[in-house]
Every structure is written in C-alpha cells, then in structure tokens.
Amino acid sequence: MMHMFKKTGLYAFLIIGALVSVAPYLMTLNSAVKQPDKLLTTPAWEPATSPTFANFSQVWGEYDMSSFLWHTFVVAAVVTVLQVVFSCLAAFAFARIAFPGRELLFWAYVATMMVPQIVTIVPLFLLMRQFDLVDTYPGLILPYVFGFGAPYAIFLVRQYFKTIPVDLESAARIDGASTMTVFTRIMIPLSRPILATLATMTFVNTWNNILWPLIITNSDRTRVIALGIATLKSQYASQYNLVLAAAALALLPLVAIFLAFQRNIIRSIALTGIK
C-alpha cells in the first residue's frame, strides 16, 4: 500500500511539473487564435471561444514572416550540420588519439565555456567587419560553429566517445581499419543517440538566439525569426495578437523537431546514466 501511495504521489508530481512546463506554450498557441478584442479581456488559459487564424495570415502576409523563418532555418540547419561534424572530429581526437598536451589542450578549451558570450561579441563583430561579412549568412553562421557552444559540444561528444569500449577499436585495428575507418564505421554509428541530442540542442539554441543576429544583421535579407518578432513587437506594441501569432509560428518548428528526435534524446540520457 505504501509503495502504491509513493508511486501515485510521484506520478502526480510529474504530471503537475509537466503541466507547469508546457503551460506557457499552450497559452501562447491559445492566445494566438483568439479574436483581438478577446485577447486582453480574457485570461490566457481560457480557451478561445471562436478560434481564428486571421492573426497568422495577417502576420504572414503583411510582415513577410516566411522570409524570416527561411533565414532562421537555413542558419540553424547549416550551424547544426557543421557543429556536429567539427565537434565529432575534435572529440574523436581528444578521446582516442594520443598526442603531447592533449589533456591540457582539451581542458583549456573547455575552460572557455566560462567566458560570457557578451565578452566576445565586440571582437567577433570587428573580425566579421574586417572580412566584410556583416549582414551575410557566413557572418551569422561562423561564430556559432567555432565559438558559441562549440566547447560544450566537443565536451559532450568526447565524454560519450570515452564510454565506447576500446576493445572494439582494437579489434578493428587488427582487421586493418584505419583511423578514419574507426571513426566513421564504429564511433559515429554507436554515437547516434548523443549526436541526435547535440543536433537538437544546437538547432534549438541557434533558432532562439537573438543577441548575435541583432549585432551582425542590419537588413531584412538575413533577419532571423527571433529578431523579427522583436521588431514586430516594437512596431505593433498594441497588437499582441500579431506578436503572439508570430511567436507561435516560431514555436511550431521546434516542437516538430523535438517530437522527431525525442526517442534519441531520451535514449542518450538513459545510456549516459547507465554507463
């Protein structure tokens, strides 16, 4: 009886926690389909009595949200692919290849995670301006790949690589496998869960970032969705229905990404905990 009581209490606690976590997103979607006159006169959690998608069509057609979404998707997708590739290469070197000063170099690089992003903003901007990359896709992408979040990505993959038995690599070496063969045929296939987690985290963080796009872009040709919503809010401060509709448009792709990769994310966390 006591075991059942504890189990019921645990599930109740988890359900409440899940509802608290999901509530802001549900309220955003709910408010985005409300009539403009009902938005400020009813609580955010009250279901819309007469849902309308006019807010979405208005913000999509009048404010060119499709371009902002496309810019954000291109930047986030390219950053995700490049960061996963380079992080895997660096993590493999730090985990499996012996060279002088490997541990010192690794921990020195990981220590850069302690440097606030704001400290590197001005030097990065001056560097991008020197190479004439202001308001360009490369200017948006390169700092993410080699700066923002890269140390954590390498640390995450390196720690996972170290949990893979060395005997598998030794057996492959005996069969004549090269270093690149070991990397592509053993390490990468066995690391799919953590790579899916890293890809999801990188995509979401890049999608939501507003500070660097605010600094490096100055026109609509490269403006991302987070910056577009901020600009929309400043232009239509009293029309919260449009702002919430734009926020919902930015939220839906992230929900789809998470639903597509949730199994891999949960599996990577479970495997890491077991090992």
Rank of each mutant, 00 (worst) to 15 (best):
S66A: 15
T206C: 05
A248M: 08
L29N: 08
W70G: 14
V145C: 01
I216N: 06
V79E: 03
T222Y: 02
P24R: 03
L254K: 03
F73P: 09
P43T: 09
A77N: 00
D175I: 09
A32C: 01
I216C: 07
V182Y: 11
M113H: 06
I164F: 10
A98D: 13
L39T: 04
A226N: 08
H3F: 14
T80M: 01
T136F: 06
I16M: 14
P138H: 09
I174P: 04
L232V: 05
Y152Q: 07
M4V: 15
A108Y: 01
T52R: 00
D64A: 09
I225G: 05
G273H: 15
P123C: 02
M27V: 13
A77E: 06
V33E: 00
A98W: 15
F155S: 06
S67I: 13
P51S: 02
S268W: 02
V182N: 14
A230T: 02
Y144C: 00
G149M: 08
I216H: 02
R192Q: 07
A256M: 04
F92A: 00
W212Y: 05
A256K: 00
P24V: 05
T112M: 10
W212G: 10
F203K: 08
C88P: 03
A48Q: 02
V81R: 09
Q262W: 08
T179E: 13
Q239S: 03
G61S: 14
A77Y: 03
A199L: 02
K7G: 12
E103R: 08
Y236D: 05
E169L: 01
V85D: 04
G9T: 07
N218C: 15
L26W: 12
V166I: 11
F86G: 10
V78W: 05
D64S: 12
W207S: 07
F183P: 01
V145M: 11
K162L: 09
Q58H: 11
L26F: 14
P123N: 05
V122R: 12
R185T: 04
F131L: 06
T200A: 10
Y63I: 13
D37L: 15
Q262A: 09
L252V: 09
I274R: 08
S66M: 13
F183H: 08
L124T: 06
S21F: 12
F13P: 11
T272Q: 11
A108D: 03
